[in-house]
Design a protein around this nucleic acid. Structure first.
Length: 272
DNA sequence: CGAGTGCCCTGACAGC
DNA sequence: TGCTGTCAGGGCACTC
């Protein structure tokens, strides 16, 4: 499932490919008209200025004042080759290498739409998104203030994208494991001494995963069709009933706010 | 307005 | 073999 490291990996491949290319034609393929693809056709004739990323969203400012927004959802894959099945969007590009871009999205959770540049009012999560985790804007002082605002358990609060952007289910479990914070700890009750550690572990886990081109469980692929190798580095996620790498206790799996949640019941004590 | 719930969607897989 | 049921979850509409 694409989270920040996966989306950043894709962004790094898209940037040299798409920057300066003109979209000759933008079309929906096997995708209904609707808010997930709104205004897409209006990208036709516009030139891609660059490829940015905010949280899990790809942002492509265009020459005529619009911005193409791509979210990979759960199963979104961008490729220069026609994957044959579940293609939702096809872009035809101006002359150069790889003249077509295919957006494949098996489960249709993704988006590929156009807005006025910088106008994210129709995308509430992007609109009120927390700081980029790998920037200096995400630091213990800022994070402490953000945690004070919520009594939600820390895990779903991280998934809300509000205290920090880009963290999804896998990396939330990994960062909480690494910093020994129980996923059900109310955000405002995370121990003060653990806050700088949690900040650092979020940064470390995401940076290490970018190095490995992300985590492939099933569907995620890089633009070049490669899998993400970070799956081999996961300590808690997907390791139900296996020994905790730190203390040997069996990893627990519970459901928190509808999401599978893995943690070590011995290492990760709930603050009170 | 913050918080909680359920929905979208399809493929993989378990069980019979 | 083939059917049915369950699970996976990011973002958002909806509710209180």
């Amino acid at each position: 499932m694409p989270e920040l490291p996966e989306v950043e990996t894709v962004r790094r491949e898209l940037e040299p490919w798409l920057t300066g290319r003109t979209i000759l034609k933008a079309e929906r393929v096997d995708a209904p008209e609707g808010s997930k693809y709104s205004g897409l056709e209006l990208a036709s004739g516009q030139t891609i200025k660059t490829v940015n990323r905010r949280g899990k969203f790809l942002l492509l400012p265009l020459s005529h004042g619009d911005e193409l927004i791509i979210h990979l959802g759960m199963t979104g894959v961008i490729s220069p080759k026609d994957p044959g099945k579940h293609v939702r969007v096809k872009l035809s590009l101006s002359e150069g290498e790889n003249p077509f871009l295919f957006f494949q999205d098996t489960r249709r959770f993704g988006r590929f739409l156009l807005v006025k540049a910088g106008n994210y009012s129709d995308l509430p999560t992007l609109f009120s998104m927390g700081p980029e985790p790998l920037s200096d804007d995400f630091n213990p002082g800022q994070f402490k203030a953000a945690l004070q605002k919520s009594a939600m358990p820390i895990k779903p609060y991280l998934l809300s994208q509000k205290p920090v952007s880009g963290v999804g289910n896998i990396y939330a479990d990994e960062a909480l494991w690494a910093s020994k914070v129980h996923p059900l700890t109310p955000a405002k009750k995370v121990a003060k001494r653990q806050i700088p550690l949690l900040v650092q572990m979020i940064k470390d886990v995401l940076a290490a995963s970018i190095e490995a081109q992300g985590t492939t469980l099933n569907d995620y692929r890089t633009v070049n069709g490669e899998v993400g190798a970070y799956i081999n580095e996961l300590k808690a996620y997907g390791h139900k009933e296996e020994p905790c790498p730190r203390c040997g206790t069996a990893i627990s799996k519970i459901v928190v706010a509808g999401r599978g949640t893995h943690f070590c019941p011995k290492c990760q004590k709930q603050s009170s």
